[in-house]
Design a binder for these strands. Structure first.
Lengths: 246, 246
DNA sequence: GGACGTTTGTGAATGACTGCACAATCTGTT
DNA sequence: AACAGATTGTGCAGTCATTCACAAACGTCC
C-alpha cells in the first residue's frame, strides 16, 4: 500500500486494462461474487450435455438473472466471450472456477456433528466443488471416535491438533448457539479465516475473517413475511379506510 | 394495475402518514425484511436475560449492524421506540414477530428426507419460531412409513393429500437437484406459494411464488473466493509486474 | 418547571447495484 | 471483400441501500 504502481498505465488506456485494475486490486463486487457459483453450476450442467458454446442470454436464463447482468459480472473476470458467438463453456468454466478458487481443493473442518453437522459431513457436493472435509470435531463422548466416510470425529480438545495438521483455513460451525462464539474464537486464533456459520447467533470476529451465516429459521421467517403480506394485501383497502390513523 | 389510487394523497402530507403508506402498501424493503429475523433473535436472547429496555446502539451491536440502519429498519414497522430511553424489548419483540408472521404458527412440509431433509425435520428451531412441520415426503421405499418426531413419511404420490389436508403454503425442498423442479411444479400447482430450496438448482416458478435458495456448496465457494484473494493479494504486485498482459 | 443529557426518527448525502441501449466485433454467406 | 445477422462489452441513468447528522422528544435532577 506504500506505493501505487510499478509501471504507470501507459497512455493508450485500453478499456481492457482499466477493469483489470479494478477487478484485481479492488476486487469483484460482492453481489457478483455471490452469483459466480450459480453460473458455475449452470455451466457444469451444460458441459455434461456436451454443449460447447452458449450465449449470455441462454446462460442468464439458466441462472435466473438478467443477461446484461451476466455479461457485466463476467466482464469483471476478463473478456472471455466472443462477440457474435458467445462463451466457450469449458473455458468459461475454468476461468470462473479459478476466480472462485475451485482449483484449490480447500481443506474444510466441521465443528459440531448434530443432525445438521452430520448431514453436512455426508454431503457429497463439497467434493465436486473443490472442497474436502478433513476434520470433524464434537464434544459429545457418544460421537467422538465415530467415523463418517472413514474420517473419525475428534474431541473439541484436539481442535488445535486437527487444524494444525490439516492446515484448514475454512471451517463450518454447526454447534448449538451457546457454543458457537467460543468455537469461533478458538478457530480464529488458530488461523482460520473463513467461517460458515449454521448456529443461530451472530459471530463477532476480527477484521480479515470472513463469516457467512446460514440460518434456517430466519430463511423461513423471511418467507413467512411475504406470505403474511399476501393475505394482508387482500384486506388492505379495508384496513386503510378504517382506523389506521390511530 | 388499471387504476392508480382510489383517493389521491391529501394535501397535508404528514411525514408519519407517508411512510405508513410505503410500508403498508409497497412493503418493507427486502434488505430490511432479511434483517428483521436477526433483530428478533437478538431480542429473544435479551428477553431471557430480563433486560426490558434497549437502545438502538446496543441492539445494533448485538445484531452486527449499524445503529442508524437498525433505527431506519424499525421505523418501517412504526414508531415503537421512546426518545431518550430506547425500545421496550417485549413490545418490540411482539411487533417484529407480528410483521414477520411469527404469530401465525405456519404449517410447513418437507420434501426429500436424505441427510439434510432429515436434519431439517429434526431441527427444533422451527417450532420456537412459529413454524410446525406437518408433512414429510420422500420417494424411497426404505424411508416411507418411518417416523420422525411421531410424524410418518409419506410417499411422493400422496403429496396432493398431504398438502390439502394440512393446508401448508410453505414447503422445503431437500431433494436431489434432478427432482427439485418437478416437485416445485407440483407444489405450486397445489397452492404452495413459498419454497425454501436446498437443492442445488435454480427453480423456475410463476410470479407470486417466493423462492429462497440455500446452497451449501455455493456458500463455501463464496468464502473460497475471499480466501483466494487474501493469498492473491500478497503476490499481487509481483504478478502485476510480470506477464499479466499476455 | 426549566435545563441537561440521552436516544429516537428521518431528511439528505453517499454509495452500490441493476438494467437499458448501443457501438464494437465476430462468423458465415454471397 | 463487402454485407447481414448475432452477440459481447460497457457507458449511463435509474433504483435501491447505507450512513451521516441533526432536530424533536423523552426522563431526570435540581
Amino acid at each position: 500500500m506504500s506505493h501505487t504502481f510499478p509501471t504507470d498505465p501507459p497512455s493508450r488506456t485500453a478499456a481492457g486494462q482499466h477493469w483489470r485494475t479494478v477487478a484485481t486490486l479492488k476486487g469483484i463486487p460482492d453481489a457478483t461474487v455471490a452469483r459466480l457459483p450459480v453460473y458455475l453450476r449452470a455451466l457444469n450442467q451444460l458441459g455434461e450435455q456436451r454443449i460447447d458454446t452458449i450465449s449470455s442470454g441462454a446462460l442468464a436464463e439458466a441462472a435466473g438473472v438478467n443477461s446484461a447482468q451476466l455479461r457485466k459480472d463476467l466482464s469483471y473476470l476478463g473478456s472471455y466471450g466472443t462477440r457474435g458467438v458467445g462463451y466457450d463453456v469449458q473455458y468459461l468454466r475454468l476461468q470462473i472456477g479459478r476466480a472462485v478458487g475451485s482449483a484449490h481443493d480447500w481443506p474444510v473442518i466441521i465443528v459440531g456433528l448434530g443432525n445438521l453437522g452430520t448431514a453436512l459431513a455426508n454431503y457429497s457436493g463439497f467434493y465436486s466443488h473443490g472442497f474436502r472435509v478433513v476434520g470433524l470435531i464434537d464434544t459429545s463422548p457418544e460421537l467422538v471416535g465415530k467415523r463418517i466416510h472413514g474420517l473419525a470425529i475428534s474431541d473439541l480438545s484436539e481442535l488445535e491438533d486437527v487444524v494444525a495438521r490439516t492446515g484448514a483455513v475454512i471451517a463450518v460451525i454447526a454447534t448449538p448457539a451457546e457454543a458457537a462464539q467460543a468455537v469461533a474464537d478458538r478457530l480464529v486464533y488458530l488461523g482460520v479465516t473463513s467461517i460458515l456459520n449454521f448456529a443461530p447467533t451472530v459471530l463477532v470476529v476480527p477484521d480479515g475473517v470472513n463469516v457467512r451465516k446460514v440460518d434456517l429459521g430466519q430463511e423461513l421467517q423471511i418467507l413467512a413475511y411475504h406470505e403474511q403480506r399476501k393475505t394482508d394485501d387482500s384486506s388492505q383497502v379495508l384496513a386503510e379506510s378504517r382506523g389506521t390513523s390511530s
